[in-house]
Design a protein around this nucleic acid. Structure first.
Length: 418
DNA sequence: TCTGGGGTCCTAGGACCC
DNA sequence: TCTGGGGTCCTAGGACCC
């Protein structure tokens, strides 16, 4: 049996943990640079505020409605998230963290559906007691059904946070009440095409012939249909396979116009992406670097990119930073007001295929990179970093409504007056 | 003052090669 | 009258997720 646990409006809920004054107020959290709304608590949602809308478009409305607006406080969310995952792992055989606010659990015992349901309430209660986060729990014999049950647990009347979709009766009772776009893997475009074929809820989708879905759409949709029918298509390892591409990109807090700033930003992204690459024990054969101005600015949209290939695949940050430096000449155009840059590591393979170049001295720097990673893990992110990144970052993201980093900064730990 | 997220996978089609 | 293929690499952009 699988379960999917996720947090109700995670970012907004975390803000309410450390600022009790917010608990009965509508709260919204913004993305990087205070660009878009990325979380709205249930109270804000009821007032009509939605996710992924540019903030400046709803700014006035939010002010009028008394919505409290916060910038993203990632340090805090990541810390609370890891606490929650450690609580969750006590309940299951295996846990796969799927994103900052949700995880799949795998169970080997065979229980009755009523017992699963009760376990769901137990998990909810425990997470509330230990971390003060509201979660929904959904159980199913496949990850796609667990995800659907989670949707039912949170959205359908009468469930209050826990649901099971296992038997035929449960499928018949719950799937017809779920829109086809709410199925995991069905986005806006597929929804349109499916609706045109008369497939307008999760149950009708589950009744389709897998072969037909493969013929008209793709193997991805075929697997979704089979999983809705209860056939396991995604092995446990496939829920989170090694990534084939790793990107680090960010928009600047303000426009950037100098080559030095661009270089420093690229080096920063090279560090972040390469660290992720090492964390999944992989090497990259090539890397892409890009820089662009804003498509929303008046000037012509400019996006430059440069690809570097490595004779020997690497996860050495220095190799990526060197390549970034070479790419800079192609990326930088004087006069362009850069809005966004990024680094992508491509053509990724497992590090067990590491092979030295026959004609140059050993390129295995894994010991050096291990020291870098373990130092930063022990003494904090960025304790040790590359000079190419510069020592003064003028392009830090805009976070005008940042709350206190209550669990990760000594000077911002909450004080209780007696 | 000015404002529009970040990440991954997949594929069509252009450019280039012989 | 009818006539030029097949392969690889790269990029841009679509689609999906949170």
């Amino acid at each position: 049996m699988f379960a999917l646990v996720d947090v109700t409006s995670m970012y907004a809920s975390v803000e309410k943990i450390y600022n009790p004054n917010l608990r009965n107020k509508p709260v919204m959290v913004l993305s990087n640079n205070d660009g878009c709304v990325v979380a709205a608590c249930p109270i804000a949602k009821r007032l009509g505020f939605k996710k992924f809308v540019p903030y400046f478009q709803v700014k006035e409305e939010a002010k009028k409605a008394g919505v409290v607006v916060c910038s993203s406080n990632y340090e805090l969310y990541a810390d609370v998230s890891s606490k929650m995952f450690s609580v969750m792992s006590q309940f299951c055989d295996e846990l796969h963290e799927y994103s900052i606010d949700e995880a799949f659990m795998r169970f080997s015992p065979r229980l009755h559906d009523s017992e699963w349901l009760a376990l769901g309430y137990e998990i909810r209660k425990t997470i509330w007691r230990e971390v003060k986060l509201p979660v929904g729990v959904g159980f199913g014999p496949t990850p796609t059904l667990a995800k659907a049950a989670n949707h039912a647990a949170k959205k359908l009347d009468g469930f209050r946070g826990s649901a099971v979709i296992n038997t035929q009766q449960e499928k018949q009772a719950l799937l017809p009440r779920m829109a086809v776009a709410d199925v995991w893997g069905i986005g806006g475009r597929l929804e349109k095409r499916l609706m045109a074929m008369g497939i307008n809820n999760a149950y009708t989708l589950s009744q389709q012939s897998p072969a037909k879905m493969r013929k008209y759409f793709s193997i991805v949709l075929e697997n979704t249909v089979r999983e809705l029918q209860g056939e396991l298509r995604m092995t446990w390892d496939e829920i989170r396979p090694a990534k084939k591409e790793i990107y680090s990109t960010r928009s600047f807090g303000k426009r950037v116009t100098t080559q030095d700033e661009l270089r420093a930003a690229l080096a920063t992204h090279a560090e972040i992406a390469t660290k992720k690459l090492r964390a999944q024990h992989s090497l990259a054969h090539s890397a892409t670097f890009f820089a662009a101005n804003s498509p929303h600015d008046d000037s012509r949209y400019v996006k430059q990119s440069a690809l570097s290939s490595f004779a020997v695949p690497t996860n050495d940050t220095r190799h990526i930073i060197h390549a970034a430096s070479d790419a800079l000449n192609k990326l930088f155009i004087p006069g362009v007001r850069y809005y966004k840059v990024g680094v992508g590591l491509l053509d990724i393979c497992d590090e067990k295929y590491r092979q030295d170049d026959l004609f140059t001295p050993s390129t295995d720097n894994s010991a050096l990179m291990a020291v870098l990673d373990s130092t930063n893990a022990r003494y904090g992110r960025n304790t040790m970093h590359f000079g190419a990144r510069g020592f003064q970052q003028n392009f830090a993201m805009k976070r005008d409504f940042l709350t206190k980093r209550a669990t990760t900064r000594w000077e911002e730990i909450p004080r209780i007056k007696c």
